[in-house]
Design a protein around this nucleic acid. Structure first.
Lengths: 209, 209
DNA sequence: TGACGGTGAGACGGAATTCGTCTTAGTGTC
DNA sequence: GACACTAAGACGAATTCCGTCTCACCGTCA
C-alpha cells in the first residue's frame, strides 16, 4: 500500500469490457466488510480475495495497483450510491428553496445513517476524515455536482448552480462532522431557517423567471 | 505464535519479584482490547506493546515466550476474576441447595454479561470454544475447584465436593454455550428445579450432619 | 553517592508474511 | 475449437514481525 498522498488517479476507468458479472461488486463488498472488521492497517489483499471468494490474480486483474485503486473504486461507488439515494428524495420539489432544504436534510440523514461511515470514523478517524475533507472533498464536490447541478439548473444559470452545490456539500459535511448548537441540518425546520437566512438570499435573485 | 496444541504451561509463575506496579495489568488490559479489536490472527506483539504504552523489551521481560504465555496469563487472570466475582455472591447461603442454585445462576449471568467473551465467541469462535471446552475446561475446573470446593466443604466430604464442583462447571458451560428449551440456568426457579431434580438427590444423602 | 532493578528506545539478523507477477489448467460461451 | 474469464498456486522481492540484545535513563535504597 503506497503512502503517496493519494492515488486520486482515474479509478473511473474501472469499468471493463466484459460482463463484469457482479464479481467486481462482490470484491468491493468484501473489501468493505474487511476494512470494517480489521481496519486499513491490518488489511491484506489476500483477506479481501478470500472474503470475496476470488483469487488474488483476479483481484489484481480487476484493480491493477492493488489496495490503492481498489479502495479508490470503492469510494467512487459509495459516493455514487450516496447521491443516487439522495436524488431519489428530490423528485417532487418545485422551488429552489425546497430543493435546497430537501437536499441538505436528506444528505445529513444519509450521513448519519451510514453505519459503514460510522465504523470507519471510529476505527480509522485519520484516514476517514481525510477522505471527507482535504483529500476527498474535491471529488465529493465533483460527484455532487454531476448529480445535483442538473436539478438546480431548473432554477439557476449553470455557473451559479455549481457554486451553490459546492456550498451545500461543504455545509452538510461540516455540520455533520461538527454539529452546531444553533443549527441541525437534519431537522427540516432548522435547515429551512438556516438556508433561508444564509444561503437562499444570495441565490434567489439569480433565479430564472 | 506457536501452533502447539496449547502452552498450558505454568504461566502461574508470572508473579515477579519486584513491585510489578500495575504494568502487568496494563499490558493484560491492552492485550484484551487488542484481541477484541483485531482478532488473534492479526495481532502482533507490537500492537500490544503500543496499546499498553510499554516497550517490546518490557513485554518480553514480563512474559518470556511472547503472545503464548501472555494470553495464558490473561486467561488465568480472567478466570480468577470470574470466580472472585462469583464467590461474592455466595456469602450468605446456608444450605447445600442454595449454594448450588446461587452458584449456577450467578455463574450463568457472569458468562452472559461478559462482553469480552461475547466478542471473542463472535470473532474467534474456534479458539474461544477451545478455551472453554477441550483445551481450557480442565483448567476451568481446576480453578473452580480451588475457589468453590472450600465453600462446598461446609456440607460435603472433600472428595464429593470436588466431584460436585466439576459437575456444576460442566453443566453451566454446556447450558451457556447451547441453551436448552427446558432449562434456563440463569433463571432462579428453573435452576432450582433442575438442580433439585438431577443434582441434589445424588449429593444430599452425603451431607454431613 | 553509588549500586541496582525496572524501564524505554531501538538496532540487529533471521523468520514469516505479504506483495505483485506469472504460468497453468479449468470452465462456460459463442 | 477459439475466446474470455477465472482459481490455484509458484516465484522472487519487499515488507513486516519476531525475539534478543545493548544502552541510556530514572527512581529507590543502602
Amino acid at each position: 500500500m503506497t503512502n503517496s498522498v493519494t492515488v486520486a488517479a482515474s479509478a473511473a476507468g474501472v469499468h471493463h469490457s466484459g460482463v463484469h458479472s457482479g464479481v467486481e461488486a462482490r470484491v468491493l463488498d468484501a473489501a468493505k466488510r474487511c476494512v470494517e472488521r480489521w481496519g486499513m492497517s491490518k488489511l491484506t489483499i489476500d483477506d479481501i480475495a478470500n472474503e470475496a471468494s476470488v483469487s488474488r490474480a483476479t483481484l489484481y486483474r480487476m484493480f491493477p495497483g492493488g489496495k490503492d485503486v481498489l479502495f479508490e473504486a470503492l469510494r467512487v461507488r459509495e459516493l455514487e450510491d450516496f447521491f443516487t439515494r439522495l436524488a431519489a428524495h428530490l423528485e417532487h420539489v418545485d422551488t429552489l428553496g425546497d430543493l435546497l432544504v430537501t437536499t441538505v436534510v436528506a444528505a445529513t440523514h444519509e450521513l448519519r445513517d451510514d453505519s459503514h461511515l460510522a465504523v470507519m470514523l471510529a476505527s480509522e478517524p485519520g484516514e476517514t476524515l481525510t477522505s471527507l475533507t482535504v483529500d476527498g472533498l474535491p471529488r465529493i464536490i465533483r460527484v455532487a455536482t454531476v448529480f445535483l447541478v442538473p436539478l438546480v439548473d431548473e432554477y439557476l444559470p449553470r455557473r451559479d448552480s455549481a457554486r451553490l452545490v459546492e456550498l451545500l456539500a461543504r455545509l452538510v459535511i461540516s455540520y455533520f462532522l461538527a454539529p452546531s448548537d444553533h443549527v441541525d441540518l437534519g431537522d427540516l425546520d432548522s435547515a429551512r431557517s438556516f438556508l433561508g437566512t444564509f444561503v437562499l438570499p444570495a441565490f434567489e435573485p439569480l433565479v430564472r423567471p
